[in-house]
Computed example of a mutant assay.
Amino acid sequence: MRRFLALAAVLVMTTSAACAQLSRSTDSGNASSEPATNERGNIVKQAGEPAGITNKLKAGKEELTFTLNSLSMTDVCEKNYGSFTDSTKPEHGHFLVLDMSVTTAADLDPMIGGLVLNPNSFSTIGPDGVTETDLATMGTYSCFSDERFPTEGFKSSQKYAGKIVLDTKNKSGVLIYTLGGFEGGWEWAYTV
């Protein structure tokens, strides 16, 4: 047990030190200084605007650029299985569908390559000001399964595209994306 705790402490310190060398950028190629953030510590974006992660050890070089291309909403998700159709309804009220794309650098840092985009990385804030964090349900993984965003880590010199589905009660509000080890994240206001 003592050996396990010592190993866990080393992993946390290593991850924290590595994350200190990474920073968020407002868009591809604009990593010269820390971007402006709002009262929640997030960079405010609009759908279609690129965002990124830079590496201070590589002179602020962009490692990964991602874009929330569009958002849409549906109250049912139908999946065809040849001879029958299965309909899935959201548990919280609505499926918020994110169309995402990612481009990685040629010499992508392995730590950044291990990042993933999935429903667990997102939260919403509704018009009532309440933050909703449990957006991953069984339905979010079955909707658009043929168009789902890749769930494995990223590789160097690659482009990725797909859909991430969230299960939210909020038809409008603020969508927030955060990564473990980062203070703050990115956010988009939405009304669908």
Rank of each mutant, 00 (worst) to 15 (best):
W188G: 02
L7Y: 00
A18T: 02
G153M: 05
E62T: 15
E147N: 12
M13L: 15
L166H: 10
G82S: 10
A9P: 09
A136I: 07
H94F: 10
G162A: 05
T140P: 06
C143E: 11
L7M: 09
C19D: 05
T54L: 05
K159H: 11
Y177P: 00
F144H: 08
W186C: 02
K79N: 14
I112L: 06
G180L: 09
P150K: 15
L115T: 12
G113M: 03
G52M: 03
D107V: 09
S28C: 14
G185L: 01
D134P: 13
D167I: 09
T54C: 04
Y141T: 10
G184M: 01
L57K: 12
I112Q: 05
G113I: 07
V192L: 10
G113P: 00
V97S: 02
T133H: 06
S142I: 02
M100D: 09
L96P: 00
F182I: 04
T133C: 09
S16V: 09
I53H: 10
D75M: 11
A161R: 12
A9T: 15
L64S: 02
G129C: 10
W186S: 14
Q158C: 04
D99M: 09
Q46C: 04
A106P: 05
N38C: 12
A161E: 11
A51V: 00
S28H: 12
F122R: 06
F122T: 03
S33P: 09
G93C: 04
S33R: 09
G181H: 05
P127L: 14
F95Y: 08
A189D: 08
E147L: 11
S123F: 15
R148T: 05
T15L: 14
N55T: 04
E91A: 15
D99E: 04
V116D: 08
W186M: 02
E132P: 08
G114S: 01
A31T: 01
K159D: 13
N80S: 06
V102R: 14
Q21V: 01
S25R: 11
